[in-house]
Design a protein around this nucleic acid. Structure first.
Length: 929
RNA sequence: GCCGAGGUGGCGGAACCGGUAGACGCAGCGGACUUAAAAUCCGCUGAGGGAGACCUCGUGCGGGUUCGAAUCCCGCCCUCGGCACCA
């Protein structure tokens, strides 16, 4: 009888083994075959569930695999230990966040041990410890010295529930990333990191990274580069000008108004010159509305006319300046030139506020329309148009003509003869023209637009109320789809640039503007500077002192760390509520001074931690530049895709900044990135608040850690989100028991001498097959693990175990079976280390699994001597042949044998063979007519 | 709206570079063992047809290229993720 598979006993037995033997300690001074593997460190909170487990199990599996392959693997772990949940819990329980955090850390560590997940614990780092955050503060000082940290007053995102400001990246859909409360705008003086200085490099260097494409795409979107021009519009009747950014300088001649964001400095200047309650109210109202409402898809475009005007430099037309809710201070210059003919938002705004629309870009579709109203034309027009081949429809006596743009002139000439005095028609398409009996008026500038409107109103009193030509035309359903388009096209109504084709329009216009000093080429990024101030206690204090005499004084490096004051309980006021902390003396003049009371965003802590692991106990400096340059970039970084922008972008920025300061010699912190998917339950990501958690302890209790690990790696491709299945996991457990049974039934093999490799030729058929399958398995498991295809690696192992099951039912070659079982255990050990260690020992080994080399395969054993060849007739499988490898590419022989098959004969019967396709070693396709 | 990823049995998923679709596992069905059940082991399991060897259909939908398409091309539909009044 074989011992029962008692996973509890086995796992208890080996739980401390690997750590005690020090297998996971990296040789930090050995750079040969070094491999820096890193999992994103966790924020310790509550306890780990099986979804969290996925990340660490992947890491542990890979680490064991690479250790057995002779790599010097560094796989450290630490704690992203500052943060709001700990602080909020502390406030609730009138306790200190430290307590809550350290308790969670202890739980996590125990859970890692339970799962058999190993790290180089000598390198453990904890961001809330002074010996760590001292260097986070050092980082701040370096950025400050280099002009990359600055203080500015700005309207910032404010979460009323967390009582703190947030970075742009931490606002998701207008709400606080952490608690979901809608974010408000608040004017505060805050600290920023100048990440925008690196926008171009952050964008460009993405090309160097072996990262998932979707993560790179997200970062590209976030950086949001757009190219265009900056154009200066002088203010009319007063000093100054209004600078705008546009991606469509080719539409400049169609600008009919300007609009600025409510936060734009022009608004303040305006109010200073002439107080305007209504304007103030408008600005207040727009700014009060949360981002969610302001950003809502169908939000009404609203504006307020300032009474000021600007001059369009390209044509000297005066255009009004509005404050508009759809203009964002955070992008471009916070002011726009509005071209309603070619921008949908501007078009809506223009219709609402009665602002003219001037088309300046040809329609690429070349469509145009003309409506000739009943009573506006002489009889015979319809017939004349029909004769000329114009497409038209008559309804209620009015003629609805659709024409191609290239027949415009011909059409106008024809229709003009029929227009009655006192009437007109329009031709609306690329350009808008009004056809009167005596003349044609083009809507090519604001003055022309005014003139045409006036004339129409004279002739038709019903149009008296209309403010613009566009409004008149909008009233005609027939014209609506032609009044606006945003595509590129040939420039028209644009002075000397008229006629410039669409592909060259932007370039040519920019050149033209530069020659005249009206503007210049410009690039704009969506990326904003990183707001790092947090009005909270549980973070690294910003090392700055305010002195009435000396102003802003950075804390001298030798005074670091600025310690968090040790208080028994924490309040919502954070550091600002602790006077002993605030009061200090100025490092320069020794006079009384105040400390900065903001702490740093926790993403600052995690933006450099991967450097600290290399020399975690160094008291002299944040990291050892020499060693860091040897070990980094991280060879393989693994974490959740939720950090695609935040953490990963900040870390890239900090690395680049440190490189520019001379502390590092590499540009990118993480050479390869893998983002694992989430584990769901009930279709949703596991989360404590939703109550859909499968805890690691309950799974380990029922099945053991090996089963949890195996199932986690087997359930599907690791990059994809997947549903945790309480029934599927049983299959993984069953598999481990089968292996257990198989090995334990053959423990007598332990006494056999160690066998080496086998010569296939000397083996009988059954043995040869087993030998080949073993070698194939060794190859595919190794290949799959290195490609992160853990699920198919496990399948291959399962197939091999099935094969072994068949084998041991018959006659056994002891030495061969011994090799097969031993290599099976080695291959399986990264997945299920506990049971493998136990089985290894039972097979008579005194050394640990990890002291063995990863099995190698014999190339020759991968070459089989017979191959199955599929026989197709017209591409459909009709039979199979088993042929010696030597014949597997022999076209004539294969054709001959294929034709002999009965099933093939039937298909060929009565048809003529036209062609034979042979894919060596794969198939024969007989094509018949 | 723009960008990205993806749609394969009852389910999770395999299928290298265009060459046997559905590996492996789960669930289900049948059998062995058992007084019985659980566990375990063996067999079957995409759909439809046929007594049967076999035949037809089948990888979101519609076309195309090819001797041959889950895979390549064109046009759609749907799901998920990111960005979104970005000038």
């Amino acid at each position: 009888m074989v011992d029962r598979y008692d996973f509890k006993e086995i796992e208890r037995k080996w739980r401390s083994f690997w750590e005690e033997r020090g297998f996971f300690k990296a040789d930090i001074n050995g750079f040969d075959r070094k491999l820096y593997y890193l999992n994103m460190f966790p924020y310790p909170s509550g306890e780990l569930h099986v979804g969290h487990g996925r990340n660490y199990i992947i890491g542990d599996c890979l680490t064991r695999f690479y250790l057995m392959n002779g790599y010097n693997v560094l796989n450290p772990m630490g704690w992203d230990a500052f943060g709001l949940p700990a602080e909020n819990a502390a406030i609730r329980h009138k306790a200190h966040p430290k307590k809550w955090t350290y308790e969670a850390i202890a739980r996590y560590k125990e859970q890692f041990r339970t799962m058999g997940v190993q790290f180089d614990w000598e390198r453990e780092i904890t961001t809330c410890k002074p010996e760590y955050y001292k260097w986070t503060q050092w980082l701040f000082l370096k950025l400050y010295e280099n002009g990359l940290a600055y203080r500015a007053a700005a309207l910032v995102n404010w979460c009323p529930s967390c009582a703190t400001s947030l970075a742009n990246e931490q606002v998701v859909g207008g709400a606080c990333e952490r608690c979901g409360t809608p974010v408000k705008k608040k004017k505060l003086t805050q600290w920023f990191f100048k990440i925008t200085a690196y926008a171009e490099r952050l964008l460009r260097d993405l090309d160097l990274l072996d990262w998932p494409e979707r993560v790179k795409v997200m970062q590209r979107n976030w950086i949001g580069k757009s190219e265009g021009a900056e154009v200066e519009f002088p203010l009319a009747d007063r000093e100054g000008s209004l600078k705008v950014f546009t991606t469509r300088p080719d539409t400049l001649w169609g600008a009919t108004f300007m609009a600025v964001a409510p936060e734009h400095p022009l608004v303040e200047r305006l109010l200073a010159e002439r107080p305007d309650r209504a304007l103030e109210e408008f600005v207040d109202r727009v700014l009060r509305v949360s981002e969610i409402e302001r950003g809502a898809a169908e939000a009404e475009k609203e504006g307020y006319f300032t009474g000021w005007q600007a001059v369009n430099p390209v044509n000297n037309e005066k255009i009004p300046i509005y404050v508009a809710n759809y203009v964002l201070m955070g992008y471009g210059t916070g002011a726009i030139m509005a071209v309603p003919a070619h921008d949908e938002r501007d078009f809506q705004f223009a219709l609402r506020y009665g602002l003219p629309v001037i088309p300046v870009i040809k329609r690429p579709d070349g469509r145009a329309k003309s409506l000739v109203l009943k009573g506006a034309y002489r009889p015979g027009l319809k017939e004349a148009l029909a004769r000329a081949g114009f497409q038209l429809e008559e309804r209620d006596g009015s003629l609805y003509v659709s024409l191609a743009e290239d027949r415009r002139a011909e059409y106008i000439a024809l229709v003009q003869k029929f227009i009655l005095p006192g009437s007109w028609t329009e031709v609306i398409g690329s350009s808008w023209q009004f056809v009167f009996p005596d003349r044609v008026m083009n809507i090519g500038s604001i003055s022309e637009e005014r003139a045409a409107l006036e004339r129409c109103q004279e002739l038709e009193p019903a149009l008296q109320g209309k403010r613009t030509v566009a409004e008149v035309l909008w009233g005609v359903e027939f014209y609506r789809d032609l009044l606006f388009h945003a595509e590129f096209g040939e420039m028209i109504n644009s002075g000397e640039l008229s006629g410039t084709p669409g592909e060259e329009a932007v370039k040519r216009t920019i050149k033209w503007l530069e020659e005249r000093g009206f503007g210049k080429a410009a690039v704009s990024y969506r990326l904003r500077d990183w707001l790092i101030s947090r009005q909270r206690y549980w973070g690294a204090p910003i090392p700055i002192i305010y002195c009435d005499k000396c102003g802003i004084v950075p804390v001298p490096e030798e005074d670091l760390p600025v310690l968090l004051p040790d208080v028994p309980t924490v309040t919502k006021e954070g550091l600002a509520g602790i006077p002993e902390f605030v009061q200090t003396s100025c490092p320069r003049c020794r006079g009384p001074a105040r400390r900065e009371t903001d702490t740093m965003d926790t993403f600052v802590d995690s933006s450099w931690y991967y450097l600290r692991y290399i020399s975690p106990h160094d008291h002299e400096r944040p990291f050892d530049t020499r060693l860091v340059n040897k070990w980094l970039p991280v060879d393989q970084y693994v974490g959740g895709v939720e950090h695609a922008i935040l953490h990963l972008m900040y870390s890239r920025f900090i690395t680049k900044a440190l490189k520019d300061m001379g502390y590092l010699d590499f540009d990118e912190p993480f050479a390869r990135l893998f983002t694992q998917g989430m584990v769901c339950l009930g279709g949703q990501a596991m989360s404590k608040s939703k109550g859909n958690i499968v805890s690691i302890s309950e799974v380990v209790e029922e099945y053991g850690a090996d089963t949890q690990r195996l199932y986690t790696l087997f359930m599907g491709p690791p990059e994809k989100d997947i549903e945790w299945s309480p029934t599927d996991i049983a299959g993984s457990s069953r598999f481990i028991r089968r292996v257990w049974q198989l090995v334990n039934e053959h423990l007598d093999l332990a006494s056999l001498p160690k066998a080496g490799k086998f010569e296939q030729a000397a083996l009988g058929e059954r043995d040869r097959r087993l030998w080949q399958r073993l070698n194939q398995t060794v190859k595919s498991v190794g290949d799959d693990i290195s490609l992160f295809h853990f699920n198919t690696a496990v399948s291959a192992l399962m197939e091999f175990v099935n094969e072994l099951g068949d084998y041991v039912a018959g006659e056994i070659n002891g030495p061969l079976l011994k090799v097969a079982l031993e290599e099976l255990i080695l291959l399986l050990s990264p997945f299920t280390p506990f049971v493998c260690e136990e089985l290894w020992q039972r097979l008579g080994h005194r050394e640990a699994v990890l002291e063995n080399r990863w099995p190698r395969y014999d190339e020759r054993a991968l070459v089989v001597e017979e191959q199955e060849i599929v026989v197709q007739v017209n591409g459909k499988v009709r039979g199979r042949l088993t042929v010696p490898v030597a014949l597997a590419a022999d076209q004539e022989e294969l054709k001959r044998r294929a034709m002999e098959l009965e099933s093939v004969q039937r298909q060929l019967d009565g048809h003529k063979l036209q062609k034979v396709i042979v894919v060596p070693g794969k198939l024969v396709n007989l094509v018949v007519g």
